[in-house]
Simulated scan of single mutants.
Amino acid sequence: MEPAPLSSLQEKEGEPAGEDSSSAFSAAAVPPRPATHSHSLHKYAPLDWSDYFDEERRVAIPGTDDVFNVYTAGSEGPVVFCLHGGGYSGLSFALAASRMKNKTRVVAMDLRGHGKSTTSDDLDLSIDTLTNDVIAVIRTMYGESPPAIILVGHSMGGSVAVHVAARKEIHNLHGLVVIDVVEGTAMASLVHMQKILANRAQHFPSIEKAIEWSVKGGPLRNIDSARVSIPSTLKYNESQGCYTYRTPLEETEKYWKGWYEGLSDKFLSCPVQKILLLAGTDRLDRFVISEFEKFSILLSMATVLGHKEGSYLDEEDVPEEFASHILNFISRNKIGPNGVEIPGLVKKWGR
């Protein structure tokens, strides 16, 4: 269902062509009608966002027609502001949010053209527009005096997080976490994107079937995560009588290069504490390796904790470990609601 990040472009062994999970993309939006259930598909029945988040908010941007859907969890601590990959939705972070919300606040935004967000131009996925959207949402939610914020972004969302941090317009920004995207490998994979998108399963008779495909033929390995996040990546096509992707990523090709061009330099120059979560060292381009001492590189759970081969969606597939790394990052850098250490966060790295 959701191809994995652009930075990870290896086909899974033994799978037919067209079911490659390793692009920077994935699909996104909540269908307007419930799916039919059958006994055989019960294990793929959708799960509600409210099992993981505390609230769903509609953030209207003043002076525009743009309204962004945002999921929130937790009431204390700094804000972990999460940005999903292309075609995903904020619900990609659902399982991780439920594991972090007792120690920190979690906000997961549906980006433009994804999930339940609605804008005047849903196809404008240029990096400047996406960056402006995130800054506008944060300002609308918190004004000019926000609590301490840690930006967390996966793939395309990671690029947006870097650009937001590089703009230096968010007051009290204390951290940056980028998941599974590095400029070199991302740029090299762009030539394959249209083929990968075209070869995906395109139509699903039910939401359950889409969830099943995402686990068996797509990038996800955690069934519970698929059950909560996949419905938000779909829309119901009345004329065809089936579910299709909410986000037509194939129509946004002109913006892809802009997501990743110059990303390494921007990441390294961001004046906040930062960390890069990767599925393996093979995704480090030469520039980043040469500047290794300037930031922390933590190999993601795929390498350190050995989750299943072919899986790249760390926040979805291993939410416990992902949440632990985020909380440790906050503790290690003593990030609290007002830039002070949070009592009770355990300082432990790895297992």
Results as ranks from 00 to 15, higher is better:
residue 5 P to S: 13
residue 6 L to D: 05
residue 7 S to F: 05
residue 18 G to C: 08
residue 24 A to Y: 08
residue 27 A to W: 07
residue 28 A to L: 10
residue 36 T to E: 14
residue 37 H to V: 03
residue 38 S to F: 06
residue 39 H to F: 12
residue 41 L to N: 14
residue 41 L to E: 13
residue 49 W to V: 03
residue 49 W to R: 00
residue 51 D to V: 00
residue 52 Y to L: 11
residue 57 R to L: 14
residue 57 R to T: 06
residue 59 V to S: 04
residue 68 F to I: 08
residue 68 F to S: 05
residue 69 N to E: 10
residue 70 V to D: 09
residue 72 T to K: 09
residue 74 G to F: 01
residue 76 E to A: 14
residue 81 F to D: 04
residue 82 C to G: 10
residue 87 G to F: 03
residue 98 S to P: 03
residue 100 M to S: 07
residue 104 T to Q: 08
residue 106 V to I: 12
residue 107 V to S: 04
residue 115 G to H: 11
residue 116 K to W: 00
residue 117 S to L: 10
residue 118 T to K: 13
residue 119 T to M: 02
residue 120 S to R: 07
residue 121 D to P: 01
residue 122 D to C: 04
residue 124 D to Y: 02
residue 129 T to P: 01
residue 130 L to W: 11
residue 132 N to Y: 08
residue 139 R to H: 15
residue 142 Y to M: 00
residue 145 S to A: 08
residue 147 P to E: 01
residue 148 A to I: 00
residue 150 I to D: 02
residue 155 S to V: 05
residue 155 S to P: 00
residue 157 G to V: 11
residue 159 S to H: 07
residue 162 V to N: 06
residue 164 V to D: 10
residue 168 K to P: 01
residue 169 E to N: 05
residue 173 L to H: 05
residue 175 G to T: 10
residue 184 G to S: 15
residue 186 A to T: 09
residue 187 M to K: 11
residue 188 A to I: 00
residue 199 N to A: 15
residue 201 A to M: 11
residue 204 F to Y: 15
residue 213 W to C: 11
residue 216 K to F: 02
residue 225 S to I: 07
residue 226 A to E: 08
residue 226 A to I: 10
residue 229 S to W: 02
residue 230 I to K: 06
residue 232 S to E: 06
residue 236 Y to R: 10
residue 239 S to K: 15
residue 246 R to F: 06
residue 247 T to V: 09
residue 248 P to R: 06
residue 249 L to N: 14
residue 261 E to D: 15
residue 262 G to K: 10
residue 262 G to Y: 12
residue 264 S to Y: 04
residue 267 F to S: 04
residue 268 L to T: 09
residue 270 C to V: 12
residue 276 L to Q: 15
residue 277 L to T: 05
residue 282 D to C: 00
residue 284 L to Q: 13
residue 284 L to D: 04
residue 284 L to R: 10
residue 285 D to R: 12
residue 288 V to D: 11
residue 296 S to C: 06
residue 301 M to P: 02
residue 302 A to M: 07
residue 315 E to F: 09
residue 317 D to N: 15
residue 319 P to F: 09
residue 320 E to G: 10
residue 321 E to F: 06
residue 322 F to Y: 14
residue 324 S to I: 04
residue 331 S to T: 03
residue 334 K to T: 03
residue 336 G to C: 02
residue 339 G to Q: 04
residue 340 V to H: 14
residue 342 I to F: 00
residue 347 K to A: 13
residue 347 K to F: 13
residue 348 K to H: 09
residue 349 W to A: 08
residue 351 R to I: 11
